[in-house]
Design a protein around this nucleic acid. Sequence first.
RNA 1: GCGCCCGUAGCUCAACUGGAUAGAGUACUUGGCUUCGGACCAAGGGGUUGCAGGUCCGAAUCCUGCCGGGCGCACCA
Length: 566
Amino acid sequence: MLTVLENLKQQITKELKLKEANFSYPPNSALGDLSLACFEIAKERKINPAEAASSLALKLGAQRKLKKYFFEIKAVGPYLNFFISSEYLADRVISAIKKTKNSYGSNKSGAGKKIMIEYSNGNTHKEYHVGHLRNVAYGDAINHLLNANGYESIPVSYINDFGIHVAKTLWNWQRNKKYEESSEDKGYLLGKCYSEASQELAEHPENKEKVVAIMKEIESRSGASYELWEETRSWSIKYFNSIYHELGIKFDHIFYENEFIDSGLKLANELIKSGQLIKSEGAIIANLEKYNLGVLPVIRTDGTALYPVADLALAQEKFKKYKVEESIYVVDIRQSLYFQQLAKIFELIGYTQKLKHLSYDFVTLPDGMMSSRTGNVITYEELKNKIWENLSLETKKRHEDWTNDRVRQVAWNLTISTIKFEMLKVSADKIITFNIDESLRFDGYTACYLQYGYARLKSIVRKEALGIFASPVNLNCLREIKEKELLMKLARYPELIKTASEKYNPSELTKYLFELVQLFNDYYHGVNILKAEPRIRRARLALIKAVAQVLNNGFNVLGLKVVEEM
RNA sequence: GCGCCCGUAGCUCAACUGGAUAGAGUACUUGGCUUCGGACCAAGGGGUUGCAGGUCCGAAUCCUGCCGGGCGCACCA
């Protein structure tokens, strides 16, 4: 089914007998609601754009068919501007939202297509920090966006549980009793242990031999170190799962690197036989120089696997077992060359499915790059607690009558939405310089601002005890300019879901929702809803319920949960 | 050396992918609760879009060259 605006655009295109029409929205509503720039048309007809616009305005103004939709059509310079009838708009938008509820804004453009999206690729035995948070928040929002556009999106995570970092951690864990004795979460402690191990090894490189010995033992899959690996690995995994639970993120499947080493080596050997991989300087590499992609080392001189080994096997499994058409990797931009190489290898092997690297820039701190080695990181734990403390205090201050439990619950929801929102509101190609004090703010362009608007809106709705949608509503009563602006905004939500997905850009949605709440707040201050006369009150309540529905839907796509009161 | 990304108001970011007067938040100044929730709203100042050329009816956006900042380029992931 067409959305209101799609329908209007189609009507105009048909009336003007255009093959293609590029519509836009005027910068302010006084100019019109919908606009058609006439530069192309003028070029074809060899007249100037303003002339084209005014002759088209004259032609369309006479069409009786369009009177139902537009109360005015006029040329403004080179633009042909349409003023949509409020009555028509209100009726179509509000009834569409009322009818489709949680699926308002969704479409079927990706129907029948299966996509796997991989994100939150953490390392066991390491810290989970704000960098990972940007990755999960972004990956999860894209996952929801794909679903909202009809794709069958399969969210997965790939955990590296088998690298040298594991051996470093185990080495330090064994020699240092303080970790064993600590009462803190063991999964969390491993991260600290790794960080301290790196610093220790940097100062005393002579210990590296011991670490290598531990690594060999793990790889042999027997012995004391292997057993300790199994045990500690499960702590990390449990810890990651608790984080995902807190963040409200669910993966369909989690892959582990150690499960793909053997099949990866097998695949690599086949590729050596077929000549896709070659020996060079003692190592096994993929030579991609003729594609301008340099060289990718795959197997070390000593015969042990490098990271592409497991990646190759995993990618193959995604295509063969899960039968996906596309495999998306949400990984930071530093690995873009690597993913180009990986995609090229798959193309050369003969796979036609797409392997897409969805990159984003990293999170740094005001005093430089985050680094586990120097200890310059903000961990998830640290960030969460700081924001949560702050928001608990603010909530308590405003609701002295609430139980501690209730305060905790609301503050917790606000904390998670703040963390995710801060990560999502900046476009993916910008470095986020993460300032922890900035993230504690709750006014302006923040999750709390949106949540507050929603809570206030719902508070009004609650005061009207009876279901408004049930009683007859005359939407003709919506005659305020601000009501028209709200309706236009709501009407545009479906196309926003589409473009945000096409561009893999959740920040468009955060911005849209912010603007929607801004409009509502403005409306709220200028117009009285509950104290209006009954006919008008019913119409206004129907409008703000529609706003609440769209906010709720947008929040869901971003992976956030609305709060009813705060 | 080669390649990729970024540079917009004091600060943090937008700008519908080449279109209308470059907009928000924050900070600063001022105003608004006998009013549906003030975690709110309104008003004000603040810009040579890093610099210089070019293409175009039209450039923050495209092309070229510089200048800044960041990141990758063979056994780390």
